[in-house]
Computed example of a mutant assay.
Amino acid sequence: MHSGAQGYINDRTTDYHSLKSRLMGHGISPQRSDHFDVLNHQLRHRLMSPGKLVIVADAYSLSCSLE
């Protein structure tokens, strides 16, 4: 089965919400937004420094998780 996640290494100091918007776009569905938060729960409410690993799931992985 298709693995639907990719790793991203943050390249600049930024806040979590700005990074999420940059990686996922501004018009993401609430489900994809929540999924991103679950995958990156250890990063929420923090200032993101360069070198932090962020997990970005594609839409297929969201539908698999819901199943």
Rank of each mutant, 00 (worst) to 15 (best):
G27Q: 13
G4L: 04
M48I: 03
S3L: 14
D37W: 03
V38A: 14
E67L: 11
Q42I: 04
I28D: 07
L23F: 02
V38E: 15
M24Q: 06
R44S: 05
R22C: 06
L23P: 05
G25H: 00
L19E: 03
M24R: 03
H26P: 15
S61T: 07
L19Q: 02
R22E: 06
F36T: 03
D34K: 12
H45K: 11
M48W: 01
G7C: 12
K52E: 13
T13P: 10
L47P: 05
S65F: 08
R12H: 12
S61A: 11
G25C: 03
A57S: 12
L39W: 04
N10L: 13
L19V: 01
L53C: 15
L19T: 02
I28E: 08
D37A: 03
I55M: 10
L62F: 08
R12A: 12
Y60C: 13
G4T: 02
S33A: 08
L62N: 06
L43K: 03
D34R: 10
S49Y: 14
N40G: 03
H35A: 11
V38M: 15
S29K: 02
Q6Y: 13
S21P: 07
G25S: 01
S49W: 13
Q6I: 07
S49F: 12
S65R: 11
S18I: 04
M24D: 08
S49C: 13
D34Y: 10
S18Q: 04
T14I: 03
S29G: 09
H45S: 10
I55E: 09
H35I: 08
D15I: 04
S29F: 06
I28V: 11
E67N: 13
G27M: 14
M1I: 11
H2R: 15
V54N: 00
M1F: 14
L43E: 01
T13N: 05
M1N: 14
L23C: 06
G51T: 07
R32N: 10
V54H: 00
Y8I: 02
V38H: 15
L23K: 03
L66V: 07
D34L: 10
L47W: 08
M1S: 14
Y8A: 01
H45E: 07
M24P: 05
T14D: 06
V56C: 01
K20D: 01
M1V: 14
S63R: 06
H2V: 15
Q42W: 07
Q31V: 15
V54K: 01
G4S: 04
K20V: 02
L66H: 01
H17R: 11
R12I: 09
Q6H: 11
V54G: 00
Y60T: 13
V54C: 05
G25T: 00
A5G: 15
S29T: 09
D11K: 09
G7D: 13
M24C: 05
Q6D: 11
M48C: 04
P50R: 01
R44W: 03
L47V: 10
L47H: 11
S65P: 12
S49Q: 13
D11Y: 09
S65W: 06
L47I: 11
I55Y: 07
R22D: 10
H41T: 12
R46I: 01
Y8P: 00
R12V: 10
N40P: 06
G51A: 06
S33C: 10
